[in-house]
């Protein structure tokens, strides 16, 4: 009989590698990678020009301020202020339609009916998205670092290195979330849109409402966990719980005794990492479960 003598049973790891490689190639060929790169370069260019021209104190510090404080301010404003956006856009760009596209574009009909587990396809595509996103994140970090070294030669705070690692962990968790959404929907545009809306707006609103209005720590929110990326860049790591008085309500404390207070929670580093890792695991399981059951109808 033809066939079986001339081909070997391929291991799942090798198949994952194949899917990763060809999907990564597809990102490059489809110009998706270059569009994302252009966005990052544009953000970096704007920051470079603004800092160079206006020399804002939020970036370069006040005159006489210690360098160790000023340098943290620079990375906090330049990196901390934008890295979440970079992570969210990368996750949406590379992961938002990774699975839904197989259904909408019918490419799944070419790939799925082969001797390969769906989980291998899922993991392979996820790894391709992670590699592409990591390159984007690394480029953004490199430009920030180059600018930082220009203004503060030879001074790279250890907090920036940690912040980069936290941002990468956030990227891992965000990709897991966007892949889960991608498995849920059959339309690429809906899954991308839902991912962006959730990560950019919904979670932030939930964080604010939960902590400031209801007074509950938003431990269930991925963006709350990701707060450690910026918190680590502060001179003093912010306290876990902060209560801020915004003055008097109903005529002031003198008349009623009531004051308007805002509660702010800040995730500690272990807590933030825990939230991100749990998001990664839970969303990976949900995404895989959905993809395994989703039908090409």
């Amino acid at each position: 009989m033809s066939g079986s003598q001339t081909k070997a049973r391929v291991g799942t790891l090798a198949q994952i590698g194949t899917i990763t490689r060809y999907n990564f190639l597809n990102y490059f060929r489809a110009r998706r990678f270059y569009v994302m790169l252009a966005i990052i370069l544009l953000i970096s260019l704007l920051l470079t020009v603004v800092v160079g021209y206006y020399r804002p104190v939020s970036f370069l510090g006040l005159p006489g301020e210690p360098v160790s404080t000023a340098v943290l301010g620079f990375y906090g404003a330049g990196w901390g202020g934008f890295v979440s956006l970079v992570v969210i856009l990368s996750a949406a760009f590379f992961g938002g339609d990774a699975i839904s596209g197989e259904f909408q574009n019918r490419t799944g009909y070419f790939l799925v009916p082969n001797p390969i587990r769906r989980s291998a396809i899922y993991v392979g595509k996820w790894l391709a998205a992670l590699v592409a996103s990591t390159i984007i994140l690394a480029i953004f970090a490199a430009i920030t670092l180059a600018n930082g070294l220009y203004y503060f030669p030879g001074n790279v705070p250890w907090q920036f290195e940690q912040s980069f690692v936290f941002a990468w962990v956030y990227l891992v968790a965000a990709l897991s979330l966007t892949f889960a959404f991608s498995s849920l929907f059959k339309s690429s545009s809906i899954s991308i849109l839902m991912s962006v809306i959730l990560l950019l707006f919904v979670f932030s609103v939930v964080d604010t409402v939960s902590s400031a209005v209801v007074g509950i720590e938003p431990w269930f929110s991925i963006t709350y966990g990701a707060g450690i990326i910026t918190s680590i860049l502060m001179v003093q790591y912010p306290p876990h719980l902060q209560t801020q008085s915004l003055g008097s309500a109903l005529g002031g404390a003198n008349r009623t005794g009531a004051r308007f207070e805002i509660t702010t929670y800040n995730a500690t580093v272990p807590e933030g990492l825990e939230i991100l890792v749990v998001y990664f695991i839970v969303m990976a399981v949900i995404g895989l479960w959905l993809f395994e059951r989703k039908e090409f109808t």
């Binding site: 081909k7 060809y22 190639l25 060929r29 489809a30 490419t107 070419f110 082969n114």
Partner: peptide, 22 residues
Amino acid sequence: TPEIYASLTPKEALGMLCEIRG
């Protein structure tokens, strides 16, 4: 009628299947 990743060439697309199929 399956679709093939639009950015791949037939040789690459079939290469991918060759790898998957051993």
